[in-house]
Design a protein around this nucleic acid. Structure first.
Ligand code: FES
Ligand code: FES
Lengths: 149, 149
DNA sequence: GCATTCCTGAGCATTACTGTCAACTATTAA
DNA sequence: TTAATAGTTGACAGTAATGCTCAGGAATGC
C-alpha cells in the first residue's frame, strides 16, 4: 500500500515549483537541485504533468515550467492521476466501484469505501495548502537558527 | 497505491472462515475452493495469520482453522498487518509519522495524514461487519433467483 | 550559430509480487 | 499402531513493476 516514488516526486516537484515561481518559469534543473531528484527522471515526470495540463512549458534559455492554473486549484489527487498511478486499492475495481464479481465478492465494500476515502482526502489538499505549510516550516526553521546563534 | 493480493486474499479468507465456521474448524482446502485461491498460497498466508494471533489451528483429521477471537474484535487493519503489508503510503515514514527529514520535506503532512486516515478507516471495519455484509448479499442473490424462476 | 532548455523513446538493473514444489512434523480416528 | 489428515517450512522461479539512465532531438532566445 505504498505510493510509488513517481507520485511522491511529482507532488514534491509541484510544491517546489510553486515555492520558487515568481514571474519567470522555473527550470527543471532548479527543482532537481532543491528536491534532490535525478534530473532525467524529473523530465519524464514533467512530460506527464504537462500532458495532464497541470503545468505549461517554456522552451529556450530562461525557460522552464509554470503552473497551468492557480495553486489553489491544483489538488494532490490530480497530480497523482497525471503520473498514472491509481488511487484504487484493488486491481479488480474501476473508478466507479464496478467489479466483475461485485455480488459474490465478500470484500467489495471495504475496498470501494477505502478508495473513496483516499480520493476524498487527496482531492481536498491543494498545492497551495502544501506550499503554505512548507513556508511556515521554513520560517520556523529560521527562528530556531536565530535562537541558537 | 494498490494492496497486494496477499492482503486482499487474507481478508477474503478471514471472512470466508467466519462464514463457514460453525463449531468445528474450517480446513484451508474448503476456503481454497470457496474463494478460488491457490491452496499452497493460502497455507503461507495462514501461517502469518496464525503468528499474528488472529487464527488458531487444529491439527489432525477434521482439523483446520478457527478465529482466535470473536469476529467483531478482528479488524481489517490487523489482518493486513499480519501478512506484513504496510499501510503507510511512503517508505521514508515510520508508523509514528517520523521521517529523517521531517523539517525540510514539503510533503510530510499530506502523507502522514493520509496514512492516518487509511489506518483509521480499516481499523473501524471488523470481520463481522464484512460477514454480515456478505450474508445479506447472498440472501439478496437467492431472492433474485427465486423471482426469475 | 550557439548555449540553454524542454522533449522523446529506448533500454536496463533491481526489486517485489505471486505462486509452486517438496519434504517434514504434528495430531488423532479407527 | 497406523494411516489419514492437516499444518509447517524453506527454497525457488517466472513475471511484472519500479526507478532510473542514456542518447539524442527540437524549440527558443541571445
Ligand atoms: S471483485 Fe473486486 S472487490 Fe470484489
Ligand atoms: S521525509 Fe518522509 S514524508 Fe518527508
Amino acid at each position: 500500500m505504498r505510493l510509488s516514488t513517481k507520485a511522491q516526486y511529482a507532488v514534491r516537484a509541484m510544491v517546489r515549483l510553486n515555492l520558487e515561481q515568481k514571474d519567470s518559469p522555473v527550470s527543471i534543473r532548479e527543482i532537481s537541485t532543491h528536491e534532490n531528484i535525478s534530473l532525467t527522471y524529473l523530465e519524464q515526470l514533467f512530460a506527464k504533468l504537462r500532458r495532464g495540463k497541470l503545468v505549461r512549458s517554456v522552451r529556450g534559455p530562461g525557460g522552464g515550467y509554470i503552473l497551468a492554473r492557480p495553486a489553489a486549484d491544483i489538488k494532490v489527487d490530480q497530480i497523482i492521476d497525471s503520473v498514472e498511478e491509481t488511487l484504487i486499492p484493488v486491481s479488480c475495481m474501476d473508478e466507479f466501484g464496478n467489479c466483475a464479481c461485485s455480488d459474490q465478492c465478500v470484500t467489495h465494500t471495504v475496498w470501494q469505501e477505502l478508495g473513496e476515502r483516499i480520493r476524498g482526502f487527496l482531492s481536498s489538499v491543494s498545492i497551495e495548502d502544501l506550499t503554505n505549510d512548507a513556508r511556515a516550516r521554513i520560517h520556523r526553521q529560521r527562528e530556531e537558527q536565530r535562537k541558537t546563534e
